[in-house]
Design a protein around this nucleic acid. Structure first.
Lengths: 349, 349
DNA sequence: CTGAAAGCGCTTACAG
DNA sequence: CTGAAAGCGCTTACAG
C-alpha cells in the first residue's frame, strides 16, 4: 500500500506538469514563464534560460487544448472519408497526416461508411472538437459524401470527391495521366493502341479516354476502335482480352487499361492465347496498385495518381485557408506519374 | 464593403455561440445554463426547458476543449500506425473509429512510416493534445513500432503488433484460423492436405502451421509433407504449385495457403497444369483480402482476421483502462472467421 | 525586465 | 431552485 500511495503521488506530481510548476521551479511568475517558453517579450537571457531549464527538468509539455482555447485555433483537422476499404483513402490520409504533423497539426480520422447518420455524428464531433478545417475524402471524383457541409462553419477541401462549384477540390489529372501512358506507348513504336476501361458512369472513364485520344492524335495515330467500357475487374480484363485477341481480325499491339485489375486480367488472357507481353502486346495499367502491378507477370507499367501528394497539397491549402490567405475556389487536377515496368518493353527495369 | 462588414459581424455573433450566449438568451446564469444542458442539479423543468430552447435556437455546441480542460479528459485517442500501405491498418482504424465515434471519442491518425523521428514527433503531439490513450497498430504480430512508450503517461493498447509482457495487446488467432480452414477441408473429405506459406521469420507462420497440424491430428490425418515456407507472394505460390503438382509423385488433394496471394498464384499454377479447383484440388487462403479472394477463379475460400473487430475491441478495452476499470495485461487472440467460397467445393456459394 | 489581472469556454462545489 | 466564485492550463495586453 505504501507503494501504491507513493506511485499515486508521483503521478500527481510528475504526471501532468503545468506551467505553474515550471514557474515555481524557476522562481518566476506564470506570465514570465509563458513568455520565456514562447520566445516573446523581452527579458534577461538569464531568466529565459532558467525557465527553459526548469521546463526541461520537469518534462513540461504545454497543454495544447488550453492554448487552443486562448488562440481560438486547435491545430487540428478532421478527415471525413467514405472509403473504408482504403485503397484510395489511405495514401491520401498518410500524405495528409505526414505533412500536417510536420506543421504541428493533428488530424482526426472519421470513417463514415456512406452512412448519413454516421456522417452527421462525426461532423458534429468535429465541430465540437473545434477542428480548424475539414478534408473530405472519397473514392470517386464524381461523388459527394452523404454530408451536409452547409452548416459547417470552417474551411473545407475535397479530395478525390465531387466538389461544389465554389469549393476547393483536389483530384488526379486523369486525362493527363492517360496521355502520359499512351504517349509512352506511341513513343515505343506501338501503332494500334486499344483502350479497355471501366463503366462510363465513372467520370474518370471519359477523362482517361480523352487522354488516350489526345495522345493518339498528337502521335498521328487513329484510335484502335472505340474505348471498351465494362467493369473495373480482372474478369472484365480477361474476357475482353480473349475477345480482342481471339478473333483473327486485326489485333492491337498495345492496350491502355483503365485500371490495374483490368490490365492484370488482360495479361492473363494474353498468356493463355500464347501472346507475349511486351513482345506481341504492350500493356499499361492505371492506379499503380503495388500488389497488383508488381505481381503481374511481367510487372506492370502503370499510372500512379500520386495520392499522397494529393493529401499533402489538400492539407497545405486547407492550412492557407485557415490562416485567411486568399485561395482560389475550384478543382485542382494534380499531375499523375507514369511508372515504367516491363509490361510495355522499351528497356524498362 | 457593407456586405463584408455584415458577414464578418454575423460570423462573430453566430459563428461561435458560447454558453454565455445561451444563458443570456434564456435569462439565466451561465452556471444554470450549464447544469440545465448537462442534466445535473435540480431545477424547474420550466427553466431547463427555457435553456434547452435557447441552446437549440442559437445552435449551441459546447466547446469540447473547454470541457476537456475541466474534466481532465479529452475524449480523444491517438492511433499510431506504421502500415502506410494500409492493408491491415485501415480495417483496424475503421473499426476503431466507428466504435469510438459512437461513444463520443475521436481518434487522431498518426502515420509513422517506420521512421523513429516521425514516431517521436507524433507521440509528442499526442501528449500535447492530451489524448486519453493510445492504440499502436502494426502489420505484424511480432514487430514493435519504433516508438519509446516508456515515457508515455497514458494507457496504451497494441493491435497486430508485438506487445510488451505487461502490456495489453490484440492479435488475430492465427492458430485458430488455420485450424478452422484445415478442419473444413478435412470435413469435406480431403485427405492429403498440404501447407504452403510465408517466411518462417514471421511469427504468424509457425502459428498457422500449428493450426494446420492440430486440425489434421483431430481428423486423424497425417500432414502432407512439411509446411512449405517461402514468400508471401503470388510468385511463390505459383512456383510451389508447379513443383507440387508437376511431379508424378503423390499429389495433395488440398492446399492450405498462408495468405491469399500465395493461394492465387497456386491456383494459377493448377490451371496451367490442367487441374481443376476444387474438383482435383481444394484451395484455402488466409486474409480474405477481398480483391484477391473475389478475383480468383474460382473465388477463394479464405480466413478473415476480423480486423475491424480487433480495432473495436482494442478501442473498447482502452476506454475501460482510461476509466480506471481493471484490465488484465496480456495478449488477446481474437477469433478468425472462415469465409467459404468456391475454391474448396462442398456446395459453397 | 517582470508580474497581476483578465480572459479563452466551460463545470463544479458552495452559498444564498 | 439559482447564481457568484473559483478553477481547468495557458496567453496577452497592461502596469509597474
Amino acid at each position: 500500500m505504501r507503494d501504491d500511495a507513493t506511485s499515486d503521488l508521483r503521478n500527481e506530481v510528475v504526471g501532468r506538469v503545468t506551467i505553474r510548476d515550471v514557474a515555481l521551479e524557476a522562481g518566476v511568475s506564470v506570465a514570465t514563464a509563458s513568455k520565456a517558453l514562447n520566445e516573446r517579450g523581452r527579458m534577461t537571457s538569464e531568466t529565459r534560460e532558467r525557465v527553459r531549464t526548469a521546463a526541461r527538468l520537469l518534462g513540461f509539455r504545454p497543454n495544447a487544448m488550453a492554448r487552443a482555447l486562448v488562440h481560438q485555433r486547435s491545430f487540428t483537422l478532421g478527415l471525413l472519408t467514405s472509403d473504408t476499404y482504403g485503397r484510395f483513402t489511405l495514401p491520401v490520409a498518410a500524405g495528409l497526416s505526414a505533412a500536417m504533423s510536420d506543421r504541428g497539426v493533428s488530424v482526426f480520422l472519421c470513417a463514415i461508411d456512406d452512412d448519413p447518420e454516421r456522417a452527421r455524428l462525426n461532423l458534429e464531433a468535429m465541430e465540437d472538437k473545434r477542428v480548424d478545417g475539414l478534408v473530405i475524402a472519397g473514392k470517386r471524383i464524381d461523388r459527394t459524401l452523404p454530408l451536409n457541409l452547409a452548416s459547417a462553419r470552417m474551411p473545407v477541401v475535397h479530395v478525390v470527391a465531387a466538389c461544389p462549384p465554389d469549393g476547393v477540390g483536389f483530384v488526379p489529372d486523369d486525362e493527363g495521366g492517360a496521355f502520359l501512358a499512351v504517349s509512352h506507348l506511341a513513343r515505343l513504336g506501338r501503332r494500334r493502341i486499344a483502350h479497355v476501361t471501366g463503366p462510363r458512369s465513372f467520370a474518370a472513364v471519359p477523362l482517361r479516354e480523352a487522354g488516350w485520344r489526345r495522345a493518339l492524335g498528337e502521335a498521328g495515330l487513329p484510335p484502335f476502335g472505340e474505348a471498351l467500357c465494362g467493369e473495373w475487374s480482372e474478369r472484365f480484363g480477361y474476357e475482353t482480352g480473349q475477345r480482342l485477341f481471339g478473333a483473327a481480325a486485326e489485333r492491337p499491339d498495345a492496350v491502355f487499361c483503365g485500371n490495374d485489375q483490368i490490365a492484370r486480367g488482360l495479361i492473363d488472357a494474353l498468356a493463355q492465347s500464347g501472346l507475349g507481353v511486351p513482345e506481341d502486346v504492350a500493356v499499361v495499367g492505371f492506379d499503380n496498385w503495388e500488389l497488383f502491378a508488381q505481381a503481374a507477370r511481367p510487372p506492370l507499367t502503370t499510372v500512379d495518381m500520386e495520392l499522397k501528394d494529393l493529401g499533402r497539397e489538400a492539407g497545405l491549402t486547407l492550412l492557407d485557408m485557415i490562416d485567411g490567405k486568399p485561395v482560389e475556389p475550384g478543382l485542382r487536377r494534380l499531375p499523375c506519374r507514369l511508372v515504367v515496368r516491363r509490361s510495355c518493353g522499351g528497356g524498362a527495369p
